[in-house]
């Protein structure tokens, strides 16, 4: 096997760890059980997204009109919050792989803080809709919008519970450079929450 690398290949530590973690591996990082769970969750959201788009096809005017009542600015800030939290979780995984436990904890706390930002902003949106008298029965668009975003909202809460547990266990010294499956497992779930929002945001708030 030729192990030589091109001169311009990046050799930063996280890239090395990423390569070491994935090179010639069949299974993704973390516990395989969480990946089965992730695929099941992704399948549910795929059905939701497809149902939204297909229903919209027969009610385009209603969907386009109602979409304008949504706060795309709040959704954009939430997108930045989730993207940032995913980045922080990625850095937490890189830190524990380098046996930097304290850094790992700090990155995880930063990710949790971004999760809190998301929950606060999204809750504000729900309060606004509630005050405007909007609910699941208002019309087809709001039925999909509220169902989809609240289902995702619950996943964010679940992800934050997992990340909190991972942070506590990291603090207690359960993870090391050699054994950190728990951190990778929590990270994988959190990235799933992020990836779902990255499709949900343009689909519900922007595309018309």
């Amino acid at each position: 096997m030729n192990l030589s690398r091109p001169d311009n290949e990046r050799t930063s530590k996280d890239a090395q760890y990423l390569q070491a973690a994935t090179h010639d591996r069949i299974y993704p990082p973390g516990d395989l059980a969480i990946w089965v769970f992730i695929l099941a969750e992704l399948l549910v959201f795929a059905v939701f997204f497809s149902a939204y788009a297909l229903t919209r096809a027969n009610n385009a005017e209603l969907f386009n009109t109602c979409q304008l009542t949504l706060d795309a600015n709040a959704a954009f800030i939430n997108t930045l919050a989730l993207i940032s939290s995913s980045y922080f979780v990625m850095r937490a995984v890189a830190a524990i792989r380098e046996a930097k436990t304290q850094q790992c904890i700090q990155w995880l706390i930063a990710a949790l803080a971004m999760g809190c930002v998301f929950l606060i902003i999204k809750s504000g949106e729900y309060v606004h809709h509630y005050q405007a008298g909007i609910n699941l029965r208002t019309n087809l668009f709001y039925m999909f919008y509220l169902s989809l975003t609240f289902f995702h909202f619950m996943h964010v809460i679940m992800g934050m519970v997992i990340l909190t547990a991972v942070t506590i266990k990291t603090r207690q010294g359960h993870y090391s450079a050699a054994e950190h499956t728990g951190v990778e497992t929590g990270a994988s779930y959190w990235h799933m929450v992020d990836i779902i929002w990255l499709i949900l945001f343009p689909l519900v708030y922007i595309m018309r």
């Binding site: 990423l18 390569q19 994935t22 090179h23 993704p28 990082p29 990625m90 990235h191 990836i195």
Partner: peptide
């Protein structure tokens, strides 16, 4: 996200 954050890049299978 899948490739770089979830670590699927470089997997086989």
């Amino acid at each position: 996200i899948g490739d770089y954050y979830m670590g699927l890049r470089g997997l086989t299978g």
